[in-house]
Amino acid sequence: MAGLSTPKQKLSALIITYNEIGYIERCIESVSFADEILVVDSYSTDGTYEFLQNHPKVTVMQHPFENFTAQKSYALKQASNDWILFLDADEVVGDKLQIEIVSTINDPNACEAYWFYRIFMFQNTRLNFSGWQTDKNHRLFRKSKAKFTDQKLVHETLEVDGKSCILKERLIHYCYKDYEDYKGKMLRYGQLKAKEAFYKEKHFNYFLLVFRPLWKFFNHYVLRLGFLDGKKGIIVSYLNALGVLERYRELKRLEKKNQLTYYLVMP
């Protein structure tokens, strides 16, 4: 009927956490415009869970961590609204992006999902190159039109039933807190990527153990202009290569463990 307006679309902001104190505060503040903020915590030990329990705008629950895809799929099932904004705890939605998100979900011609380009922060300064300048991720989507594929354990992939578009404003990603934090993150990613490869029956070989980490460093530092980021570019490119090295080390360990189990259970 003439004169009837389209109801305002509601938005659920979802975040998964583990020991994110010092980051989660500004992430939560940046999504305070959402109608629901839901956090799934993997039994943090640094006060993250307690902070979230006491936050008036947050619903928090704890769930054992298996892998990133499983954890995000669990969080998605808990959401009350169809429109989902999924963030990492070290990501921040700026003022202009907040306005764009609200405008987008209330557009009758909106796509089913949206890619976000990101600004990467090395501590508190911007990382302009080092392979991240073209990085983009699905962060905004309709729950009824998308799901996380179970083929990926890390760097989870969204399967969208419909069209994906790109938002203009960028998400801010505080990717590098300090050396040990980033190193630990890359090693964990490498181990999960190894499990992913192992489940797909990919086999370890020494050539890839040597070649792939060297190529990763060369690609990020030289081809993707990491050298223009100075010392930051060296550190990030090295740690990214270390994550690839750990992937093949872990794949070798998994194969040895599997072979040992096989021989132990043989009659």
Rank of each mutant, 00 (worst) to 15 (best):
L187G: 03
F207P: 01
V92W: 07
F86P: 02
L245A: 15
Y248W: 12
K232R: 14
V93N: 06
V92A: 01
D150S: 14
F204E: 03
Y43T: 09
L167I: 10
F116M: 14
L260H: 06
E29N: 13
R170K: 15
S103H: 13
N19E: 08
E91T: 15
A113V: 15
F198K: 04
T17M: 02
V60H: 07
G22N: 06
R249I: 15
T45G: 00
M186V: 10
G243L: 09
I235W: 01
I24A: 04
E66A: 15
I166A: 04
L140P: 05
L127S: 08
A197D: 11
C165N: 10
K257S: 12
M61A: 10
E100W: 09
V244Q: 06
L158N: 12
Q191P: 00
F86K: 09
I99Q: 12
K145R: 15
D82C: 04
Y117R: 14
L127R: 09
R247L: 08
K257V: 10
T6P: 02
L4G: 00
I28A: 05
D181P: 00
I172N: 13
K163N: 08
K177S: 08
I166G: 00
K202I: 03
I84H: 02
E201P: 00
V92S: 05
W132T: 13
V160W: 06
G94S: 09
D229P: 02
L245Q: 12
A2C: 04
K8A: 12
Y174N: 07
G3L: 15
K96E: 09
E91R: 09
Q151Y: 01
T17Q: 06
F68A: 05
Q151W: 07
M61Q: 13
E25A: 08
E255L: 08
W132R: 12
K200H: 07
A241C: 06
T59L: 04
A34I: 06
A241I: 10
S12V: 06
V40N: 03
A89W: 10
V31N: 01
E91N: 13
